[in-house]
Design a protein around this nucleic acid. Structure first.
Lengths: 109, 109
DNA sequence: AATGTTTATCGTAATATTGCAATATTAAAT
DNA sequence: ATTTAATATTGCAATATTACGATAAACATT
């Protein structure tokens, strides 16, 4: 096997899993943190900041983009990446709603 | 390769990535949602609720446990799993701090 | 003690991910 | 038109993940 059985789960479950999966790698967390840190949307010096080869970074950026976590703007020669806050908000709302649901319940462990 | 280069990233980055990675599968999201939903900590009927074989569920539970997202209590024959809220809180705080940092910045995309 | 129930582990096949060298693509600068 | 710079894509090797049948382990029930 090896393939996730997405068809057995709800769209929302798959959608949250897609976002968290994209964040499930330290390099991609580091990219997100870098994009948060820099004031303007700087593009390819992510490659200089991270200890990974350029094709590897490019691939991680692609995955973040596919998951909707970042947006990319072509600016002449370079590409300006920045965080897409809708995805972050979606996650925040999701975890907040989970936490709220739990406050009314007993915790047995 | 295929092996993540964790040694190049900070402990915090690796720690967040470990949690998000564990959440990066719809079955594990479904397990978390089920544990949130049931009032008391019901154990192995997770297997009955999800469309996956028992060994597969057991494996997913192990991963959630390793990532610190759930706790398991042995109760005689059965095992009582429930959410470990420390991990969820950690994520919430992380995303909240990221969001706050961004409010002071320009968004160029 | 023998049987059933619940959960974990082992082994393994199918597939996905990670990482990078080599190369391609695109646009700017000369 | 060439060259340079920035980014993407391709191809591939190493490793990890996903899923499940078979089996084991632990306990409860009879």
């Amino acid at each position: 096997m090896g393939a996730t059985k997405t068809e057995h789960f709800t769209n929302k479950q798959n959608s949250i899993a897609t976002i968290t999966k994209a964040l499930g790698h330290p390099a991609r967390i580091a990219i997100i943190e870098y994009l948060v840190k820099v004031d303007t949307c700087i593009c390819g010096d992510i490659v200089n900041k991270l200890p990974l080869a350029q094709p590897t970074i490019s691939q991680h950026l692609k995955e973040l983009k596919n998951a909707g976590l970042i947006k990319g703007n072509i600016e002449g020669n370079t590409i300006c990446y920045c965080i897409d806050w809708k995805a972050i908000e979606k996650l925040q709302n999701y975890f907040a709603s989970i936490s709220m649901k739990m406050e009314k319940k007993n915790n047995c462990c």
